[in-house]
Design a protein around this nucleic acid. Structure first.
Length: 573
RNA sequence: GACUCAGUAGCUCAGCUGGUAGAGCACAUCCCUUUUAAGGAUGGGGUCCUGGGUUCGAACCCCAGCUGAGUCACCA
C-alpha cells in the first residue's frame, strides 16, 4: 500500500514502527510474555496497608496518556478492564540514556499499542489505584488509530456509535466500548447456565448434521449448496429437530444441541440469516412437564446473570419468576378479538380475517390463517413471560394431537415482550399420523406455500421402529440474549452479524498505471487527484489533465519534474 | 418493498438566506515529575457519500444513485 492512501496519522505510526526497529526494538516480538495480575484484580483487591501487588506484571493496550514532563500517566487495558500506570523517566531509564522514555514511550508509542509492564501497585494523590512502572516492554504496535472514547461519572464522550462501523469492525467496538464485551460475556454465561442444568439432569449434548439433504423440522426457506462428489444439492439446516428425535428413537433419554440454523429470509432487528437455537428432547415427558422445565431454565438464567428474576428491557421490566402465565391460543384470540374461532372451517376463518382487516391469500390453509390472527392481534400483547398453549393441528405438523381435542395439538410457545422465545411439543410419535401430516404439508406446498415442510421418509421410518413419548423444546439463544442483556437488535448479540459486502476499493494497482506509461512518482498523484483507474484518465482531455497535474504539483509543493504534454498524451492514448 | 431521517477531519459533531470549510477530542512540535472526559502554547490535517443539473458561484437548492438508521409491510 502506498503512503498516499494512508491518513496522516497512519503514516506517522508507520514511521514510528520503523524508528523502533532502528533503535533495535522489535515492535512485534515473538516471545511469550507472562503476566501475574490483571487490571480488575488490582483495582478490586489492592490495599496499601497489606502491601500486596508489589511485584506485578501486566500486559495490554495503552488507552490514554498524560505526559507531564519527566513523569506520565497512562491507562493500560487488559481483558478485565483498565488500570492507570505511573511512568517516571528516571525509573524506566536508570542510566544516562533516556531514549526509552523520551523517544519510545513519549513519541513512538501510541494509543492502541500493546505493552507489557513490571511494577508495583500504589495509590495516587487523587486516590486512584495505579501501577508504578519499573520496566516497560513493547509487545505490539498498532498502525491504525482507535476511536477515543472518554467517560466521566458515567457520561460518555465521543462515543463510537456508528452501527455500521461497530458491526463491520467489531474488534474496534470491543476495544473501545466495554458494555459490548459485557453483552457477549453474558451470552456465554446464558449458554453455560443452560448446559450445566441439562447436564445436571443427565441429558447428553450431541451434534447433528448442518448439511442436510432434506431440510426438515421447521417451516422456512433454506439455503442451498452443492456437494460435488455426490453431485446432489445439500441444504443448510433450518432446524435439527428431526435428527434429535432420531436419537431418542435410538435410545437416548435426553439429548440437546446448541445449533446454528440458517434461514434464507429477510433480515431485520430480530432476524439474522444464521442464528443459534438450543433444542432439547426428553423421553417419557409431555409438554406440561416441559413448561415447568422451561420455566426453571429461564429463571436460572436470569438469576445467574442478574441475581434477580427482574430484568430491564427498554423501558419495561420483565419478571422471569416462576410460574409463567398459561393461556390457550383459542382463549387468547377470544380475549383479544372477541371472536371464538373454535370449530371454524377455512371459509369461516377467512371471513374472520377479513372482518379483522388481516391480509390473507389463497395459499393459506386453516393453520396459517389462525397463525395470522394470533400474530396480528394477540402476540404483541404478551410482554411478561406467557405460555401460549394448544395450537391448532394444521399449524404443527410435528406435534402430537391434544389428548382432549383432536383439533388441537399439545404445543406451547413462550412469549416474552411480544415475541416468540421458545417453542415446544409433546412430540408426535405416531408414524402413520406423522406421514399424513407430512402429506398435508405437501398439499400446502402444491398450493403455493413455499415454507411448507418436505417429507422426510427416513424420519418416518425411524418413528415406525418406535419412539417413546417425548417432549421437545427449542429456544432462540439470540433472542434470549437480547432479552437478558437489554439489547433491542439481534446485531448487538452476535459478534459478526451478517452485513452487505463492503464496497471494494476499486483503485488500479501501480502495474496498470506503469503499463500505461505513467512514471512511478506520478501514480499516487493521479490517485490523489481522483483518478483511481487508468481508464478514468481516458475520459479527460490531455490538455486539461496536463494543466491539472502541473497545478497539483505546484499547489502541493511536491517538487516533481512536470511531465511534458507529449508524456501526458501518451498515458491516455 | 414503502416512507422518514442521515452521510462534512482518525472519532463525535457544528456549518444561517447559496459566497473559498469549523469545533472538541485524536495527531505533530515545544513547555511541564502526580494527573483524571488529559495541564499550557502553537500547528498540520478535508473526494463536504457518488454522478448529473440549476447558478457568476453549491457542503447547502433540484434529479438520480450508493450506504446506513428508524417506522411500517413481508417474513418466524
Amino acid at each position: 500500500m502506498s503512503t498516499a492512501e494512508l491518513s496522516e496519522q497512519e503514516v506517522i505510526r508507520r514511521n514510528s514502527l520503523a524508528k523502533l526497529r532502528e533503535l533495535g526494538i522489535e515492535p512485534y516480538p515473538a516471545a511469550e510474555f507472562q503476566v501475574n495480575a490483571k487490571a480488575a484484580e488490582i483495582k478490586a483487591e489492592f490495599e496499601p496497608e497489606k502491601q500486596n501487588f508489589q511485584e506485578v506484571t501486566l500486559a495490554g493496550r495503552i488507552m490514554s496518556r498524560r505526559i507531564m514532563g519527566k513523569a506520565s500517566f497512562a491507562e493500560l487495558q487488559d481483558d478485565t478492564g483498565r488500570i492507570q500506570l505511573y511512568i517516571n523517566r528516571d525509573e524506566i531509564c536508570a542510566g544516562e540514556d533516556k531514549t526509552l522514555y523520551n523517544d519510545v514511550f513519549k513519541k513512538l508509542l501510541d494509543i492502541g499499542d500493546f505493552i507489557g509492564i513490571k511494577g508495583f501497585a500504589f495509590t495516587t494523590q487523587v486516590g486512584e489505584k495505579s501501577v508504578h512502572v519499573k520496566e516497560l516492554i513493547v509487545l505490539s504496535k498498532s498502525l491504525r488509530p482507535l476511536p477515543i472514547v472518554k467517560e466521566k461519572d458515567g457520561k460518555v464522550y465521543d462515543a463510537f456509535t456508528d452501527p455500521e462501523m461497530r458491526y463491520r469492525q467489531r474488534y474496534v467496538d470491543l476495544v473501545v466500548n466495554p458494555q459490548v464485551k459485557d453483552t457477549f460475556l453474558k451470552r456465554t454465561k446464558i449458554v453455560n447456565t443452560m448446559r450445566q442444568m441439562f447436564n445436571e439432569y443427565g441429558y447428553l449434548e450431541v451434534e447433528t448434521p448442518i448439511l442436510q439433504s432434506i431440510p426438515g423440522g421447521a417451516a422456512a426457506r433454506p439455503f442451498v449448496t452443492h456437494h460435488n462428489a455426490l453431485n446432489i444439492p445439500l441444504y443448510l439446516r433450518i432446524a435439527n429437530e428431526l435428527y434429535l428425535k432420531r436419537l431418542i428413537v435410538g435410545g437416548f433419554d435426553g439429548v440437546y444441541e446448541f445449533a446454528k440454523d440458517f434461514r434464507n429470509e429477510g433480515m431485520d432487528r430480530t432476524h439474522n440469516p444464521e442464528f443459534t437455537v438450543m433444542e432439547i428432547y426428553v423421553a417419557y415427558k409431555d409438554y406440561k412437564w416441559m413448561m415447568n422445565f422451561t420455566e426453571e431454565m429461564i429463571e436460572r438464567v436470569a438469576l445467574a446473570l442478574h441475581g434477580t428474576t427482574k430484568v430491564k428491557l427498554g423501558d419495561k421490566e420483565i419478571d422471569f419468576k416462576r410460574p409463567f402465565k398459561r393461556v390457550t391460543m383459542l382463549d387468547s384470540i377470544k380475549e383479544h378479538t372477541g371472536i371464538d374461532i373454535s370449530g371454524m372451517d377455512e371459509v369461516q376463518l377467512r371471513a374472520v380475517c377479513k372482518q379483522l382487516d388481516i391480509d390473507v391469500d389463497e395459499s393459506m390453509g386453516k393453520g396459517k390463517l389462525i397463525d395470522e390472527i394470533f400474530g396480528e392481534k394477540c402476540e404483541g400483547n404478551y410482554i411478561q413471560p406467557t405460555f401460549i398453549i394448544d395450537y391448532p393441528v394444521e399449524m404443527s405438523p410435528l406435534c402430537k394431537k391434544h389428548r382432549d381435542n383432536p383439533e388441537l395439538t399439545e404445543r406451547f410457545e413462550l412469549m416474552v415482550n411480544g415475541k416468540e422465545l421458545a417453542n415446544a411439543y409433546s412430540e408426535l410419535n405416531d408414524p402413520i399420523d406423522q406421514l399424513e401430516r407430512f402429506q398435508d404439508q405437501l398439499k400446502l406446498s402444491e398450493k403455493g406455500d413455499d415454507e411448507a415442510m418436505f417429507i422426510d421418509m427416513d424420519f418416518v421410518r425411524s418413528l415406525e421402529y418406535g419412539m417413546p413419548p417425548t417432549s421437545g423444546m427449542g429456544i432462540g439463544i439470540d433472542r434470549l440474549t437480547m432479552f437478558m442483556t437489554n439489547n433491542q437488535s439481534i446485531q448487538d448479540v452476535l459478534f459478526f452479524p451478517q452485513m452487505k459486502p463492503e464496497k471494494k476499493n476499486e483503485a488500479d494497482g501501480d502495474e496498470k498505471f506503469e503499463a500505461a506509461g505513467v512514471p512511478g512518482e506520478w501514480i499516487d498523484v493521479l490517485r490523489k487527484m481522483g483518478f483511481k483507474k487508468v481508464d478514468a484518465l481516458k475520459e479527460v482531455k490531455a490538455g486539461k489533465l496536463f494543466n491539472d497535474l502541473c497545478g497539483f504539483n505546484k499547489k502541493n509543493k511536491l517538487g516533481l519534474q512536470n511531465p511534458t504534454m507529449e508524456d501526458v498524451t501518451g498515458w491516455i492514448a
